[in-house]
Design a protein around this nucleic acid. Sequence first.
DNA 1: AGCCATTGTTAAAACAGTTTACCATTATCG
DNA 2: CGATAATGGTAAACTGTTTTAACAATGGCT
Lengths: 385, 385
Amino acid sequence: MPTRPLNSSPESEPADVFAPSREASKEITVRFNNTGAEEKAPERVNIREVARQAGVSVATVSMVLNASPRISRSTHIKVQRMIDKMGYRPNRLAQSLSGRYTQVVAVMLPPLRHAFADAYFGEILSGIADRAGKLGHKLLIEQAKPQFVKEGKHLELYERRFVDGVLCLGFNEKHSFLSDFAARRYPMILVDNRFGDNLLDYVQCDYRLGAQQAMNCLLQLGHRNIGMVYAAPESPTARDVVETYTARLVEAGISPSEKWLVDGCFTDEGGAEAARVLLTRAPEISALLCGNDKMALGAIRYLTTHGHRVPDDVSVVGFDDIQHLAYANPSLTTVHLPLYELGVLACEKLVERIRGKVEHVAEVLPTHLVLRESTGMMRTLRSES
Amino acid sequence: MPTRPLNSSPESEPADVFAPSREASKEITVRFNNTGAEEKAPERVNIREVARQAGVSVATVSMVLNASPRISRSTHIKVQRMIDKMGYRPNRLAQSLSGRYTQVVAVMLPPLRHAFADAYFGEILSGIADRAGKLGHKLLIEQAKPQFVKEGKHLELYERRFVDGVLCLGFNEKHSFLSDFAARRYPMILVDNRFGDNLLDYVQCDYRLGAQQAMNCLLQLGHRNIGMVYAAPESPTARDVVETYTARLVEAGISPSEKWLVDGCFTDEGGAEAARVLLTRAPEISALLCGNDKMALGAIRYLTTHGHRVPDDVSVVGFDDIQHLAYANPSLTTVHLPLYELGVLACEKLVERIRGKVEHVAEVLPTHLVLRESTGMMRTLRSES
DNA sequence: AGCCATTGTTAAAACAGTTTACCATTATCG
DNA sequence: CGATAATGGTAAACTGTTTTAACAATGGCT
């Protein structure tokens, strides 16, 4: 999608955004404060004040703010000028209280220790944040700690009118509290996952397609004994990958073995350990498909430090295409998930759902393979050629 | 709401000239509702409803909610019971509108492409989020894109009453808009940085101490020709490190050379490139101090792939101690920054500042060295022993 | 008994907007 | 020319809470 500069330098903006006149008045304000009179220093102006100064009713100012067609051009200009002159900014608490929407959406993260420092979540969040900004929505972040859910705070988010809707990242069918949202018809979208029964709204990457792309690559390179480091079997999308992996093996006339499958817990260390287990109990393996890049990296680290060259002895394919891994050594061949775009889509669809423009959300985004250095032809084929 | 009946009672009562009881006419409404249909499932209950059912005034319910000591024990229990029974949740838009605080704080991130996926920001954010939760505050995230600042949206955050205060991560003196907050006395705390004039509130790690710990380590291992990969010279804390590095060299009787200093831009690739430049133009270097872990990692990657063993030929020390790097090969000796704790402290202090409990915030947290495998005795010393 | 505190409760006035029903003007048309 | 429609604007009701001033009902003390 948008290809932004890697180092977008913020100093491109002018040094002083505001007119010096405003700065001057500020100084006066501060002095006034210091003499100890009243702390009404920032002098909040409200809609009534604007209406009086513009010589119109409060309703008229409100309609100007909301660009109502019932206001004539001349009145609109007159009022808008006064708004600018007085520096009036509508109080959005009052707006939301009397209106229908809060214009805030929440992002819920799972209770992992490093949820905020995660490359996978981060990429999705970037997309969400960008689109939310464009749609005039603010973003609230919450981590769904057990305590949080137990106290029903996830429902309070709506019921106390903190937000209009919620995006849930990194949850799976084990997190039954997610059904609470649907039961009350509160707008919620599951991001990059779905529930088995498809009763919950979701947007996700096409993990089946991704797994096929990865398997095609390995099979075409001549690999037949392909191991898989999976994770989170309780997640439908993760199961998609395993199922596709198995199906492709069968299609290629290879009978998949239980010995070729190990859980790597989505972590770096888990990936390393999984590689150890796999190559110990199934030395015939010449390629590994990993459920995410972190596990792939861990696997490569284990392999290279234990006498297996990558890709000469063992090929490795990852999943995610997280940043800064193009520089790894060897650089990782991986299935690119359009996570930024998924975040954008999730936010877009959530707002549509909030506005009642759609009833149900179920969207899938295609993946593609990024061929780098961690994959190669199978050993025997290479020596033959 | 769009379909708001102006006249809340369905049956048109004669204008109740004598009855000042809006409450009375509402009772009819409610009875009507209750005996009528049940289709309006979520049926929002408000404080008036609770008051009527409990047979007390709205003020009393409000005081029960806020645990006012002016309410008798018996009344408190009676009202609380009704609140629970009806599942009443106070509308926080109304609470904030009438009250002094929104109970929301914003976190501002710099306009970097991967700001949300960053291990450094993520660790601080974890601390902020945990403490905010404990203090009953919600978290809003914003990325300070140039456009955002240019339109004055950072001030709107307060002026339209989105938040009570702001925490700014990853900014430096070049970002002059930060002074806007202080000029208006809006609560804002700079996290892990400060402005030269110290007019802005801040909390930070003790970078001078950290740099000393790192230099002590290298000097004690016998290194004398120590290079430095720095970054962001416009940031006071980053300058602290460079200054301390230079000072310690001088103290040890070593004259620092300009050739030993290279900017690595805080990135992995920058670190690799910096290492290349340093070892090309100053082959005498036997140790590197890096301004963060990412650059250290990049440097190690360059070194190990270009005939320099780490730590046998060159020792490397990082800064940050970001997670999952303990597993790198060789694992990284680094200065641990208490980023989680810094986040907690920042949030704590911001809320104190909002509440008016403190006037100015300036806190510094100590660092400590984590000795791992990327450092070793200097070559010549080793061979002597 | 009369007076002053103390205690617990309440009516009403904020807070700052949006929306609706209604009311003047003009404009259109048979 | 008068009835009807369209246009532009407004008063007041409404969103759901906190807070303050006032008030009744006790209790303690001369």
